[in-house]
Computed example of a mutant assay.
Amino acid sequence: MILLISPEQTSATEIQTLHKLFEAGLEHFHFRKPEATLEAHCAYLDQVDPQYYQYIMTHNFHHELTAEFPIKGIHLEERKWRAQGDELGAYVKSFTDKEFAVSSSYHEPEDLAAQSVDFAYHLLSPVFAAISKSDMQGRGFDVRHIPKFIAGMGGISVETTPEAIKLGFQGVGALGGVWNAENPVQAFKEMQTAFLSAE
């Protein structure tokens, strides 16, 4: 599983590139635009070919998009799922009952291992030094002892993908490793190859 996080700021060529990434096999796109309004989110999705909605997870900001677009589901960043407190299970169920997927983020493997709410998959970061955030140092998490589906985030590139698999991650999540590349589609394809050939 390779998932791709959107850049926070939308470029003029992003939608065009995104379509090419879907055509290249991208099946997990995390739509994360923290500064964008609901209207901007809708305008973005209106430009995406509806056949690809099934691959899109929206982040914290506008979960109500699930009422307007048949997207895959929602993602809860750590502060969002923590803010739910005892209501987290009910909140997640309100989406899963409608057949939306729900995923969540963590920064400590102990918190992920202890999570009692059932999520489709979990993101853990930072595994390696981040490409898109120069001040984020990697922690080299080894998750082979945690019996959950975990995707590693932070510093994920074609070079680090095999290392992440060796640490027990069943998936990887990229941002800078794809979007900052000279050719994002080619970078994604190379990451796919590295992921599929990793042991």
Rank of each mutant, 00 (worst) to 15 (best):
P184N: 11
E99C: 10
T10N: 09
M153G: 08
K93T: 15
E68V: 07
H28S: 13
E182C: 10
K80H: 05
E163L: 15
H63D: 03
F128K: 02
S103Q: 08
N60E: 11
F69D: 00
T96Q: 06
A129H: 11
F195M: 07
Y52R: 07
I150D: 01
L18I: 11
G155V: 01
F149L: 14
A90M: 06
A67E: 15
F22I: 06
A194E: 01
G85D: 02
L45Q: 01
A181L: 13
R82S: 00
P162K: 03
C42M: 06
F141G: 04
T10R: 14
A181H: 14
I150C: 01
F141S: 05
G168H: 01
A24L: 04
W179V: 12
S125V: 01
F195L: 11
R82K: 04
I74Q: 03
G171L: 00
P162H: 03
K166S: 08
F188P: 00
N183V: 10
E78C: 07
T58I: 13
I56V: 10
I2V: 04
V127M: 11
Q115E: 06
K189E: 11
Q9I: 13
A113Q: 15
T193W: 01
W179T: 11
A36Y: 08
S125C: 06
R144K: 15
G25A: 01
P109S: 00
E68P: 00
G73V: 03
L88K: 10
I71T: 09
H30W: 13
Q16A: 15
A12T: 14
Q51C: 03
L196F: 05
T96R: 06
A129G: 10
H122Y: 14
K189D: 02
I5R: 14
S104T: 11
A83D: 14
S197N: 02
K166H: 10
K98T: 12
L175E: 05
L175M: 08
A36E: 08
Y91D: 10
I156S: 09
V178P: 05
L26P: 09
F31W: 00
E78G: 05
A129K: 05
T96H: 04
R144G: 13
N180G: 05
G85V: 06
H28Q: 15
V48S: 07
K148E: 11
V143N: 02
T37A: 01
Q137M: 00
L45G: 03
K166G: 06
E190R: 08
A130I: 06
P162C: 06
L21H: 10
R32L: 07
L196S: 07
I74T: 11
F31H: 03
L88Q: 10
L175A: 04
E159T: 13
T193S: 07
G85N: 04
L4Y: 12
F188C: 04
T96S: 08
Q9H: 14
N60W: 05
K20S: 15
E77K: 08
H41A: 14
K93G: 10
Q9E: 12
I156T: 12
V185Y: 02
P162E: 03
E182M: 08
P109R: 00
G89L: 01
L38W: 02
S132D: 15
W81D: 10
N180D: 09
L196Q: 13
Q186M: 11
A198G: 06
T37D: 00
I71E: 07
G168Q: 03
G171V: 00
L175H: 02
K98R: 15
T37P: 00
E199K: 15
